[in-house]
Simulated assay, not measured.
Amino acid sequence: MIAVAVAHRRGAFALEAAFTAEGRVTALFGRSGSGKSTLVDVIAGLVRPQAGRVVVDGVTLLDTRAGVRVPVHRRRIGYVFQDARLLPHLSVRQNLLFGRWLAPRGEGPDLAAVAELLGLGDLLARRPAGLSGGERQRVAIGRALLARPRLLLMDEPLAALDEARKAEILPYVARLRDEARVPIVYVSHAVAEVARLADTVVVLDGGRVAAAGPAAEILRRADLFPGREAGEAGALLHLRVAAHDEAFGLTRLDGAAGSLTVPRLRDPAGAPVRVGTSVRVRVRARDVLVALERPRTLSARNILAGTVVSLAGAEGPHAAVEIACGGAVLVAQVTRRAVHDLGLGPGRAVFAVVKSVAFDAETIGAGTEVEI
Rank of each mutant, 00 (worst) to 15 (best):
V182G: 02
G142Q: 02
L146K: 10
V202W: 12
L204W: 02
L239A: 05
L151W: 14
F225P: 00
R221Q: 15
L224M: 09
A243I: 02
A198P: 12
R220W: 14
L153G: 06
E232M: 10
L145K: 05
A167Q: 14
R221K: 15
E168M: 13
H189E: 06
V194Q: 02
V209P: 13
V202I: 13
L145S: 03
R177C: 00
A210C: 10
V201E: 09
R208K: 12
E179A: 07
L145E: 08
H244F: 13
D199Y: 11
D205S: 12
L146H: 14
A211Y: 10
L236Y: 11
R196P: 01
M154L: 14
A215P: 15
T200N: 13
G213N: 11
A216E: 15
M154E: 06
L176R: 00
E168C: 09
R196H: 04
V241R: 13
A160C: 05
L170K: 01
G234W: 08
L197A: 03
P149L: 01
P226Y: 09
R148C: 01
A233E: 03
R177N: 03
H189T: 04
F225G: 04
L204Y: 13
A147V: 02
R143I: 06
G142Y: 07
H238V: 07
L224R: 12
L236I: 09
F248E: 13
F248S: 12
G227W: 14
P157L: 02
G227T: 01
L204P: 08
E163P: 04
A210V: 05
G234Y: 15
R221G: 06
L236T: 12
K166A: 06
A247Q: 14
R177W: 07
V203H: 13
L158F: 15
A222R: 14
V185Y: 11
G213D: 11
A243K: 01
R196T: 07
A190K: 12
L224F: 14
V139M: 04
L145C: 02
V194L: 05
D155Q: 05
S188C: 02
L151S: 01
H189W: 10
A192H: 14
D205N: 11
A198C: 06
